[in-house]
C-alpha cells in the first residue's frame, strides 16, 4: 500500500538513499577514465533514461511505443537548430515541450484505439518526422546538416544524463503515488472498469505518454553536442526505438528500476558486438526479442521474483514438515 501513503515510508527512504549513493558513485567515473569507459557509461546512462521514461508509459499501459527515436530526434534538432542563437537550457526546454506536444498529438489520434494501431503508428513516426525535417531543410534552409559546437565534454553530457535519470526516477515515483498512477494501474487491469469508475482513460494515457515522450526529447537534446554534426538519419535513427523496447523488456517493466537490469548488460553486449561483428547486430537484436518473448516474458526482474517465490515455497514446505510452523515470510 506504499504508493498511497501521504508520507515517505522507511523503505522508500532507504531506496532513495541507496539510489543517491549509487548515482554519486556513478558520477565519479569521469575522474578515473575519460575514454572508453566513460563513453560506454554515457551510453548506459542514456539508455537508462530512455528505457525508464519508456517504461513510465508502457509499463502500466502495455502499449508498445516505437516512437522513442522520433522524440529523441526532435530533442536533438531543437538544440542543433538553435545552438547559435539561444541558450542551451532554453533549447532543452523547447526539445522537451516539442516532444511532449508530438506525443500528445500521437496519443490523441491512437490511444483511444487498440494497441496494434498505436504500435503501427509509432513504428513509422521517426521515419515520418525525418522525411518532413529533411524536406523542410532542403526547401527552406541552406543545407541538411547542422553543426553543434559547444564547450560540453562527454563528462558534462554524462553528468547531465545522470541528473536527468534522478529526475525521471523521482517523477516516476511521484506519478506512482498520484491519482494518475492509480488510474493507470486500474487501466492496466481492466480498461472497461476504469471507464466506469469515472476515469478518463484516453486523457490519462495521453498525459503519461506526453511525460514519457518529453523526457526522451530531453535525452536527445543532451546528446546533440556529442554528435557535433547533426543530420536527419543520425538524429532519427529508428534503431534507438527498438533498442529501447528490447532493453526495457529485457529488464522488466513492472518496476521503475527494472529496466536497469536490461540496459547495463545489453549495452555492454551490444557495444562489443558492434565493435567486433558489425554485420551481426540485427541478428543480436532479433535473438534478444525472441528470448524476451519465449524465455523471459517478464524480464530479468520476473525471473528474480520467480526464483524468490520458489525458494520461499520450498522453505514453507520444509518448515511445515518440520513443525507445522507459521509462514516464515510473514
Amino acid at each position: 500500500m506504499t504508493p498511497l501513503l501521504a508520507t515517505i515510508t522507511r523503505r522508500e527512504a532507504g531506496i532513495a538513499v541507496i539510489g543517491a549513493v549509487m548515482l554519486a558513485a556513478a558520477a565519479t567515473l569521469p575522474l578515473f577514465d575519460t575514454g572508453f569507459y566513460l563513453s560506454l557509461a554515457l551510453n548506459i546512462a542514456m539508455y537508462v533514461v530512455l528505457c525508464t521514461a519508456w517504461t513510465l508509459f508502457s509499463g502500466p499501459t502495455h502499449y508498445i511505443s516505437l516512437a522513442s527515436a522520433a522524440f529523441f530526434g526532435i530533442g536533438t534538432y531543437s538544440v542543433a537548430l538553435g545552438i547559435e542563437t539561444l541558450p542551451f537550457p532554453l533549447l532543452v526546454t523547447i526539445g522537451f515541450v516539442a516532444s511532449a506536444v508530438l506525443a500528445g498529438l500521437v496519443g490523441i489520434a491512437t490511444l483511444r484505439l487498440s494497441g496494434v494501431y498505436f504500435v503501427i503508428f509509432t513504428l513509422g513516426l521517426a521515419e515520418l518526422v525525418r522525411q518532413v525535417v529533411t524536406w523542410a531543410q532542403t526547401n527552406f534552409t541552406r543545407g541538411v546538416g547542422l553543426y553543434v559546437f559547444t564547450d560540453f565534454t562527454e563528462a558534462h553530457i554524462y553528468w547531465m544524463l545522470l541528473g536527468l535519470a534522478a529526475v525521471v526516477y523521482v517523477t516516476g515515483w511521484l506519478v506512482n503515488r498520484s491519482r494518475l498512477g492509480f488510474a493507470l494501474r486500474i487501466i492496466g487491469n481492466d480498461e472497461t472498469v476504469a471507464r466506469h469508475v469515472g476515469i478518463n482513460t484516453a486523457m490519462a494515457k495521453v498525459a503519461l505518454f506526453m511525460i514519457s515522450g518529453g523526457f526522451i526529447g530531453i535525452v536527445g537534446a543532451f546528446l546533440a553536442p556529442r554528435f557535433a554534426y547533426v543530420e536527419p538519419p543520425s538524429a532519427f535513427n529508428p534503431m534507438i526505438s527498438f533498442q529501447v523496447v528490447i532493453m526495457a523488456l529485457l529488464g522488466g517493466t513492472g518496476r521503475l528500476w527494472a529496466p536497469l537490469l536490461g540496459v547495463i548488460p545489453f549495452t555492454i553486449l551490444f557495444d562489443q558486438i558492434s565493435a567486433n561483428f558489425p554485420n551481426h547486430t540485427s541478428l543480436v537484436i532479433g535473438i534478444a526479442f525472441m528470448s524476451v518473448v519465449y524465455l523471459l516474458p517478464r524480464g530479468v526482474v520476473g525471473l528474480i521474483e520467480d526464483m524468490r517465490r520458489m525458494k520461499r515455497k520450498f522453505r514453507i514446505v520444509w518448515t511445515d514438515d518440520a513443525a507445522l510452523g507459521k509462514d516464515p515470510a510473514e
Binding site: 500500500m1 492509480f182 494501474r185 486500474i186 469508475v197
Partner: peptide, 25 residues
Amino acid sequence: RILPSMTALENVMAGAVFGHMRTWG
C-alpha cells in the same frame, strides 16, 4: 470484473477516487 493485480482495498478505492465522490489518500 475485478482488478486482479490489485488488493481488495485498492479495488474498492478505485470507485472512491475517480467517481461521483472524489476522495484521495
